[in-house]
Amino acid sequence: MDERELVQRCLQGDYQAFDELVARYRERTYSLAVHLLADREWAEDMVQEVFLRAFQRLALFDPNKGTFASWLMTMTTRLCLNALKKRNAETHRQMAWEEEATEFEWWEEVPTPEEIWWATQQRLFVRRLLMTLPPPQRAALLLRYGEGMSLQEVAQALQVPVGTVKAWLFRGRETLHRKLKEAGLL
């Protein structure tokens, strides 16, 4: 079923339609949240928050301005970045992203079969590297390449000019490029 139709049905009070929307986008929303927050439980709470907000504000969604996915991802990005800012303000400290990356246990996901070992290691390494980038840069890379959003959509989600997004993408990609080269993965 088309997402516009699902949104319409949901606005008419069909809760199953919203469940369907959640089922379609929960994995992508969670993935974005967990990459931005670097904390699984926090990301799960954030996904709850995102869908609750989406449910409450569904009437504000305009299908002519973009897809439901980009609307949802924009909401997720803003909520996550605001939550990070709030936590930083509360603790009065700048987050040490390098430390965060090493503390964050991605390795629990490593599967045992040897044939996928290399690919998995590389994927996990990329995730770790992403964690070392500042949150807005990381968000830009994830929305652009992970979610496949356009530059304009990314700029709208991060509330910055397109030029800034381009600069963040370039710097982020260059950082990853350098680190992957150093690790011998490129």
Partner: peptide
């Protein structure tokens, strides 16, 4: 790198 990010993006809860 863009491909790697795409591949690393999805995470299961």
């Amino acid at each position: 790198i863009a491909e790697e990010i795409r591949a690393a993006f999805l995470v299961t809860a």
